[in-house]
Design a protein around this nucleic acid. Structure first.
Length: 146
RNA sequence: GACGCAGAUUGGGCAAUUGCUAUUCGGUUGCAAAAUCGAAUAGAGGAAAGUCCGAACUCCGUAGGACAAGGUGCCAGGUAACGCCUGGGGGACUUGUCGUAAUGGCAAGUUCACGGAAAGCGCCACAGAAAAUAUACCGCCCUGACUUGUCAGGGUAAGGGUGAAAAGGCAGGGUAAGAGCCUACCGCGUCGAUAGCAAUAUCGGCGGUCCCGAAAGGGAGUUCCGAGUUGCUCGGAAUCUCGGCAAGCCCCACCUGGAGUAAGGCCAAGUAGGAGGAACUUCCACUCGUUGGAACGGAGUUGUCCGCUCCGAUUUGUUCCUUGGGUAGGCCGCUAGAACUUAACGGCGACGUUAAGUCGAGAUAAAUAAUUGCCGCCCUGAUUUUCAGGGUACAGAAUUCGGCUUACAGAUCUGCGUCAAAC
RNA sequence: GCCCCGGUAGCUCAGCAGGAUAGAGCGGCAGUUUCCUAAACUGCGGGUCGGAGGUUCGAAUCCUCUCCGGGGUA
């Protein structure tokens, strides 16, 4: 697997996985509240690794602006994905990134330097939560197995 | 040369690093499907947008007839088709110029959803006498009366006034005053001729109530006058050119079956073969049955009716409706087409014909990118080699084409107008 | 992608086969009443009828374009 690549297998593509993510996942926000992420460590999926999705709600702006934000978020994740991939030993981590307070009115021109620190912060926070409280997940796993 | 307007074309370039999607080739894994790695090639628009029209394509199915509903609307052509485009015609407005007593003529530009208002219905507030079978406030004129400047009766619609709009315009005649009351011209209608495929134009005739008629004339309607008399009859005279709204209803001509690529087809996977409800009627014929015909009922025919099609059991069926559950994976459709470029020919033009050449995205929680550097263009400041900072539009394919509409920084070209300079 | 609705006062809605001051309820403000408040009563203000253009003498209403909001659709 490429160190800085992002192929189809590393993205969430089915409706079933989205249902699992949004019904069980936790939501966290970046420092300024500009972006948010929904994540969930699933044991049901056969594969191991990280699967991500990038979603922009329709009211945020026109199609050109939405496409650009999606590409910038994807680029930010692609360049820093080692933060999460090194820590995942079993199960599949599902993440969905989306803009929260950012829209085309307050950021008419948006650049990678605006997006990347926020996404990196979110990824570091997710890694921190997963490593600090592994027992919580073990409990959850036990409960689901029982 | 500068500025403005109109039209057409175009819609930043190069390099490096890291990525995504598709195709082809090669390697690895694998029985295969496929996965993965590497290389090469390709990878958003003039509007991809709005979804306002028209088609292709696909299915439903009978789409047949009548009505309804919707759309289009000067004429001709182009086109697969159109509400689009081209050419022509006509109107309106503006400017210039010529001219008249006045209306106007000619030229240029802009612009027009531009069939019908004498088929019918409806509406036209306020103001005004009167708003559509006309009417009479101020006036003007005549007659009479007397209180001699007013009243009464009548005529008239030129002028004033009202209004968005006042029942052809204007000049002359005419008159008590006036009026298509009469005449010329203009306008309007109609008929004919000429030109034109046609819209229409030009010329001529006729028309100031209509119909019949070649004409003379006859008939009818309306108004006025007179008589009989109380709502009609008789006699005579005269003769209505016509407001706007159809983006109100409507009439005429032409067009339209419905749904939409999540159409639709195939493969894989997979649960359930469920629950509830409705209908299943008569008659006739015979070769006596899974028969034929007629009526009736139900369902379908996506507005209604006719017509058409299917079904109508006597024991777990048939048809139809409602509802519950399971799948949400892959492939095809999916890009070579009413395609594009160039040339020749035909045509005023839109466009067409022929020949040669070209292949230019195909995604599906949805690729076509991110960052950096240099250059180009614009602005600002220092300065007048250059440097610093900022900006570089509108905007992202989703079945595909033809249009329309809307958004848009800059660049190039063409034409026209104004200004400046030179000859 | 495709197909439909809606936009009128701060809010919820009338008015839309055209006619001049665009209404109703709630809310707001002021006053009466009360020791004060609520309730009740009286009065008042508040609208480019989403925007632009057209038809008409006249448009919230009819037509065209456009902006915004909402819904449905295997």
């Amino acid at each position: 697997m490429k160190n800085y690549g992002l192929s189809k297998n590393e993205r969430i593509k089915s409706k079933r996985l989205f249902d699992i993510l949004y019904s069980n996942g936790k939501t966290i926000y970046s420092k300024n509240g500009l972006f948010k992420a929904v994540f969930y460590l699933s044991q049901d999926v056969n594969t191991t690794g990280v699967k991500v999705a990038f979603a922009v709600y329709k009211k945020a702006g026109k199609a050109v602006w939405r496409n650009r934000v999606k590409r910038l978020m994807r680029e930010s994740y692609r360049l820093n994905k080692h933060i999460l991939t090194e820590n995942i030993k079993e199960g599949t981590l599902l993440i969905s990134f989306s803009p929260n307070k950012v829209n085309s009115k307050n950021y008419k021109k948006i650049f990678l330097n605006d997006v990347q620190p926020e996404i990196v912060y979110l990824m570091q926070k997710i890694a921190e939560i997963l490593s600090v409280s592994p027992s919580l997940q073990n409990n959850n796993f036990k409960k689901s197995s029982e």
